[in-house]
């Protein structure tokens, strides 16, 4: 069951979920564009790969802490279910251009930010000068 790992994931997810909720309260408009969900999703899409492929190695984080921050915090901070249901709400309200922008930016922006994070992480890891500085 991995009880200890589950508790680590759960406790970090507690804060990830709350932060998503608070950002949503500030940025999401009940009848308008879901800026809050878009914002947390794009931030998470960049931060998760960058964390897992750079920060973990650089700061020598333990596997358990990496799991808690990655799967727990960022997994719960970002959400796919709110994305899809928000998009359907825009369809129901016949806000076609908002729907197209929301789905388009999420679909393309999310994967581009993850690619950028992975690319940057690899570049930093294999840059000899960068490693020199860290010593």
């Amino acid at each position: 069951m991995k009880i200890k790992e589950s508790l680590a994931v759960g406790s970090f997810a507690f804060f990830g979920g709350i932060l998503r909720y608070l950002i949503g309260l500030v940025l999401n408009q009940p009848t308008g564009f879901p800026y809050g969900t878009l914002c947390v999703n794009l931030i998470g899409a960049f931060c998760l790969p960058f964390l897992m492929r750079y920060i973990v190695a650089r700061l020598h984080l333990s596997d358990q802490l990496a799991l808690a921050i990655g799967t727990g915090f960022f997994g719960a901070f970002t959400t796919f279910s709110s994305f899809s249901v928000d998009a359907i709400r825009l369809v129901n309200q016949q806000q076609w251009s908002a729907f197209a922008w929301y789905v388009g930016i999420s679909m393309v922006g999310g994967v581009l930010l993850s690619l950028l994070a992975d690319y940057w992480a690899v570049k930093l890891t294999h840059n000899p000068e960068e490693q020199e500085v860290s010593q």
């Binding site: 909720y21 719960a76 901070f77 993850s114």
Partner: peptide, 27 residues
């Protein structure tokens, strides 16, 4: 709705892992 929707289902589903996996497939 807050507990099940924003909480449980928001924490259950993920956007960051989806894109991280996509990026790995691309590389």
């Amino acid at each position: 709705t807050l507990f099940l929707g924003v909480g449980v289902l928001g924490g259950y589903t993920t956007f960051s892992t989806l894109n991280s996996e996509l990026s790995q497939l691309w590389f």
